[in-house]
């Protein structure tokens, strides 16, 4: 009887200990994030004003802003999405629905490898393939580099999400006389849409933060540029420039630009979640 009681007490202690430890871990994880975010906020918020948001960079002491960098980042991310999302999602669908052959297995392996490749290598690849033949850096090259980074991430998450759609749902559609492509198109994809969106968001967040591949491909620009065939500014490269500059005023602007970048990513995230929210 007493043995039973002591067992019971031990179990309670172990249980509350486990809860405490995991809670502490969770706290640290979120605390680090909060510290970073609040630090960026505190350091960045002071330098943000309308001028900063719309101006182009100017020589030190004359103010200047990141307007063209925001536009450049948005344009290149957009291009990366236009190229990367359809190809990535398409590849993911293929892998999930028909990818049990040698080709599928090869593609899957290569995608996993590509995810692990440092992004600067992608930059060099595009530099060789696009920049050198064109004779100059461009927004096109930058967008392509980002797309290449994006594709394997989107493909693999899409595949995983589609695999989560229960077979019974596919069978139900097949049993109604739906051909395979329709089953995939209007049953499986909608059912997996939330997960695929999450994967896409992760990929977008990832490429929005990339600097290395853009250094080789899009370079930078001091002007507003809306055309993909010219060098393009981007937030990340601009942050890099400001942060490595010698003057304190530049460092302040780097903090401010970082805050803008994070805010933009957050905004996209919320917007996309809202637009693709599960209605059923």
């Amino acid at each position: 009887m007493s043995n039973k009681e002591s067992l019971h007490r031990r179990r309670k202690i172990v249980s509350s200990l486990t809860t405490t430890i995991t809670a502490v871990c969770a706290f640290f994880a979120i605390a680090v994030l909060l510290i970073i975010l609040s630090y960026i906020f505190v350091r960045g918020i002071a330098s943000i004003n309308l001028q900063f948001l719309v101006d182009t960079p100017k020589p030190v002491g004359e103010g200047g802003g990141i307007g063209n960098a925001i536009v450049g980042s948005v344009l290149m991310t957009l291009l990366a999405c236009v190229i990367g999302l359809p190809i990535g999602i398409g590849a993911g669908v293929y892998l999930a629905e028909f990818g049990e052959n040698l080709f599928g297995k090869t593609v899957r392996f290569l995608a996993d490898t590509l995810i692990g490749v440092p992004s600067i290598i992608v930059g060099i690849f595009i530099y060789t393939l696009v920049v050198l033949p064109m004779g100059r850096q461009s927004g096109l090259a930058g967008g392509l580099a980002l797309a290449i980074i994006m594709i394997p991430i989107v493909a693999r998450t899409t595949e995983e999400m589609i695999r989560l759609v229960p077979d019974s749902m596919r069978e139900a559609a097949l049993a109604l006389g739906a051909p395979q492509w329709r089953v995939t198109w209007n049953i499986v994809l909608p059912a997996a849409s939330t997960g695929i969106t999450t994967g896409a968001m992760l990929a977008i967040a990832r490429i929005s933060g990339e600097t290395a591949p853009l250094l080789f491909t899009a370079l930078n620009s001091r002007f507003y540029n809306y055309f993909y065939d010219q060098p393009m500014a981007s937030l990340t490269v601009q942050i890099y420039n400001y942060a490595t500059g010698p003057f304190d005023v530049e460092h302040k602007m780097a903090w401010a630009a970082t805050l803008i970048l994070i805010t933009l990513i957050l905004a996209i995230n919320i917007l996309v979640r809202f637009l693709t929210r599960k209605r059923f």
Partner: peptide
Amino acid sequence: VALRRKVGMVFQKSNPFPK
């Protein structure tokens, strides 16, 4: 496809579409 239209099926676990 025509066969399956003529011969319908109901499964063990109810499997409505997410619609």
